[in-house]
Each structure stands twice: as C-alpha cells, then as structure tokens.
Design a protein around this nucleic acid. Sequence first.
DNA 1: CTGTTAGCGCGTTCAT
DNA 2: ATGAACGCGCTAACAG
Lengths: 341, 341
Amino acid sequence: MTRITADDIARMANVSRSTISRVVNDYPNVPEETRRRVMEIIQKTGYVPHQQARNLAGVQSRILLLFINNNNDYYADKIAGSTFFGPLTALLIDSANRRGYDIIVTQSSAPHSWERTRHLLFGRVASGAVFVGVANKDPRVRPFYPLPTVILDHKPMKGDPNGPVPSAVNFDNRGGMEWAVRHVLEKNCRKIAYITGNLGIYSGRERLTGFRQAMKRLDGAPLLEELIIQGDFSEQSGYIGAKALMETHQPDAVISGDDECAIGVLRALEELKVSVPGEVSVVGFDDIELSRYVKPSLSTISAPKRDIADKAVERLVDLVEGRQVQSSSIVIPTAFIPRES
Amino acid sequence: MTRITADDIARMANVSRSTISRVVNDYPNVPEETRRRVMEIIQKTGYVPHQQARNLAGVQSRILLLFINNNNDYYADKIAGSTFFGPLTALLIDSANRRGYDIIVTQSSAPHSWERTRHLLFGRVASGAVFVGVANKDPRVRPFYPLPTVILDHKPMKGDPNGPVPSAVNFDNRGGMEWAVRHVLEKNCRKIAYITGNLGIYSGRERLTGFRQAMKRLDGAPLLEELIIQGDFSEQSGYIGAKALMETHQPDAVISGDDECAIGVLRALEELKVSVPGEVSVVGFDDIELSRYVKPSLSTISAPKRDIADKAVERLVDLVEGRQVQSSSIVIPTAFIPRES
DNA sequence: CTGTTAGCGCGTTCAT
DNA sequence: ATGAACGCGCTAACAG
C-alpha cells in the first residue's frame, strides 16, 4: 500500500502540487471551482498530508509532551490510578486537544525516560512540555528550559518567562490553608493539629507553610509545633497520624495536607469513636471525588484540577506559538468547601 | 536559536554528513577513532537528530496512538479518574515505553477527535493504534483497519490478522463468570441474582452470557431470569439493583458485572442490615484496588490490567514491525479472588 | 491565479 | 572507509 501523495492528487486534478498545498492550507488565492474539484478528489481518495513532511517544511508539530515524574517506588498503574494524577492527566490531554494539540504521555518510571524526552523535545517531535512532579532545579530538566516548558507544582523561578525560564503553575496552597485554619477557628477549635503532606513535594511544603502563616496571622489559637505531624499525602499516613495525635495531645481539629490523608484521619477517629465534627473537626485539601461520599463528608479546600490543567496548557501553547507572556508564575485560586466534617 | 544539524557536526569533525549518519545509526564501517571523535562532538553539542526528518527518510516513528472512546456524557476527568480506565491508560503507556514506543492519548470527547485520529494515523505521525471503548463495526474505526490496529474489549473479527482485520484483546469474561457462579454454588446459594454491567459494552454482554452459561452448565441452582437486573457498571446501579432485589426476591447471592457495582450492592445490604456473606454472598468482577478495602472485603474475579495492557501493546508492536501474527483474538485469563463477601 | 524551484534534515545508494 | 548525490513529501518564495 504505497502512500498517496500530493503529487498524485495534483495529477488527478490537472494542477500542480503547489495548488494542492494551497487548497489544503486554505490559501485565499485559489478559484472556487478549482478548490472544489481538488477537495473532491481529496475526499474520494482519503488523502491526508504527510505530517512529518509538513513539519520538516516548517509547520509546527502541534504535539506536546507530558512528563510525569513518578518516584520509582510507584507502580505505573498507581499513578493514573491516583485520585489526583489520573484525572489531572486526562484533563491536560483534554485541554490540549481542545486547542488542537496532541499529547504524548511519558512517565519517569519507564526505561530511558529522560533520554527519550530529549529525543522527543530536541528531536522536534514535541514542541513543548509540561513536567509534573519534578524539581525545577533537577539537572535533568534544566536542559529543556530554552524550549517551551511548564512545570506543575513547583516553585516558580525568577527570570524572563519568554526566555529560558519555565513557567510554574500552582494552586494557591497558602491561601487555601488559610481558609482551612479560618474554618476551624470559627468552630472554636483551640488545639489545632496538622498532618503534613509529603514535604519532598512543593505543595506539601507550601501547605505546611500556609498553615503556619495562617495560624500566626489569624492568631485565634496557639501554633503548637508538637501538633504538627509529618505525613505523606497517603490515607495511611492520616490514619497513623490521627491515632498518634489522639493518644498524645487530643486536638480538637485536624487539618491534613490532602483529602486522602484526611480520609485516613476520619477512619482513625471512627475507630476511636471520636465524633466528627463534634469532638474533632477535620479538613482536607484537594476536594477529590471521594471526599463527598465519605461519612461524615469531608470539608476541604478545592484545588480545581480542570483550572490548573487548562492554565498549564494555555501557557504552554502561548509559549509554543511564540506569544509574549507576562509572568513565569501562574497561581490557581482555591476555595473552601464546607461539608459535615 | 537555530537548530544544530548533522551538517554542523560534520563540519566540526571534518568528515561528511554521511559519516555522521553512520555513527548515529551504528554502522559497522566506521573507524573507531572517527566514531569516538564524532560521538564526543555530539555529546558536547547536545545534538539530537531531527526525528521528523529521519522519519521522512524512512525510519519508523515509534509513536502509537491510544484512542479512548468515552461516551459524551462522561467528563474528561471521569475517564482517567475511572478505577478501570485510568490505570489501564497508565499501563498501556508503560508497556509501550518499555518497548521503546511513545503514546499519544486522545479521547473521543475532544473536538474533532476522529478527524485528528485520521491525521495522526494516515498522516504517519503514529504508526498504529489501540482503540478502547469503540465497537469494531463502527464506521469511524473501520478505515483504520488496514493499519496496525488493536481493539480492547470488543468482539474479535474473523479474518487474517495480518491483513485489514484488527486484533481484539479481551479478558476471559465468560470464564471469569464461571468462577463466580461456582463460588456461590459452593456456598450453597440457591437464589442467585445478577446485576449486569452496561450491555452496550462488549464485556458487559459477555459477562452476562457467561453468567447464564455457567448457571446452566454447573446446574447447581435454577437460572431465574427475574433475578437478572440491568445495571451499568456503576456503584449507583448496584445500590439500586440490590435494594430492588432484596425487596422483591431476596436472593442469597448477588453477582455483579463489576466491582463498582458490587460495592454499591454492599452499601445497600449494609443499609438493609443484611449480613454479608451470612445471608447474601456478593461477588464482583475486575479486582479493583478498592475491593480489598471495603467492608466486608469483596470477593471478585481478577481482570489483570497489566496483562491486558501488555498483550495489547505487544500485539500492536508486532503488527507495526511487520511480524506475522497468528490469531486476531487474544484472551487474557481471569481468576477468582476469594475474600470475605 | 498558477507552476517552477529551492530547501527542510536525514538515510541511503553509488562511486571513489 | 568515505563523500557526493538523490529522494522522502511538503511549504513557501519567486516568477510568470
């Protein structure tokens, strides 16, 4: 099955290949009659221009790369199965598609993933990339900064975003935490505990910082460092953390680094027959699907995945298409979602 | 930033561009000394061959397409957020990566998704595709059959798999259902109910057929059509179905089209204070993560996603690389996973 | 309005 | 062993 090319179409339509190109690319200067005739032949033959060839000839590839840095202790299915990364991936793809771009997805757990990324990016198959879960100073990403690059969930870098500085897209983690603290204060909680997320991750650190700052700024209850327990965003860490907290300090509020953790907290409290929100208020972060269905339903901070995905892709496309952008940092607002807990 | 090309490297190394090509593609007839010198320059300059150009010159693209047909009533984040499709997607990507292929992911909910697919496939950016959630006689897929094509979860088509017939990869749904029926029979259940999955989907139909066949073949209890209720794979449908069943026929076993549905069944039974497995045995299908954690934990049929993903990609790669394959149908074994329910 | 021509960057004979 | 030259399929600048 030898491919049918623009030359074939040209021959069939008794015009030159240039005219075919003009029709295909919607050039104005081609008579209606000719255009119609050519289009008809294209339809009938099912001709599709060879993308690689047009790319070579200067057309942008309209392919983006999504690189997900899953730590090696994650199985591949955990990542898209994750209540957060899975939907996020889908939304990024969706946003890109809506803009006429396609997305190649790669995970760092795959063999040679970084080398493959080099080939994809420098080899011009993808014209830009969004990285999630990587540190912006990671020496493996830095080489890509001259290309259109967006980093999700990492500290913004100073510098001209139109130059070799990646754009950072983040939730307003600190602002979100302030909502959480404000909420438990309004419920008259005084012994407010915090179970952190993974502090190796930017949002994990930011949320902790946000918690501390809010406690100080709102000044409605003492900030007790012994009530801050380290977790890792997992349900398990929430469960364990809550058990430990209840045994030692009996807080009247537990704020968690994310919803999964908070759900672990709820499970622990249920086992301990501690009433929520009667004796202890619980607040999560992310507003994952499940948080609506647990009992009691989880009060949380919304981290709208669709927004972050859309902004990330929008920025990347701006960069790819050479539009000037203002700042290297994009912040997605968060909001408090009051529920039973 | 004008790209550095093979010509540049050639100039720097004082050889011709052909030699660069030979080095890059590991040709034997290049003196060690020259090879070393060239490699060094390549390293130093960070030169990466232009993929599009090499593709044009005849090299395969090593890019595959994953097309997910989510019905339009699904939101994009539901799909990857789905307990089944999300992980499946990740595993497909992973399998492809391990074989040195990259994957472009698209969803039918995106605008122009089918047209884009045409451009990707016929435009030679991807050299093969796996479709999930599409009917094999769908007129929109059929044009792609001459290309390397794999369909997940749909009835195999007759014909030469090396020709214009897609390869179908499926779980052994009927066999799995036989395990389920055997299990409840061994528990001496006599009034066995079945809540179907979405019958618009192949596996939904197959599992129902498997249930009926197993009931007849094992012949341990009557096959009561009134105990077969239509569901749609959702937790909701299991919940509603179970409530209805308990009100009317009080079965002593409920087998579901999938785990989510079964989890809905568990929720209904808990509300009705019906003991599981004391009064009613419950069996799911898929062995999703959650089934291990619900109370009581869910007995189910494993549908190993990693296996199906791996086989699908393996077959697709075989097709892309022109290897002869035997059958157009690949069946992934299932197994019974006994748990509390 | 339309055809001719020159690349795009690389793989691959074919000579040398 | 190595360079020159052609072609992959298409876009775009240039001439008519």
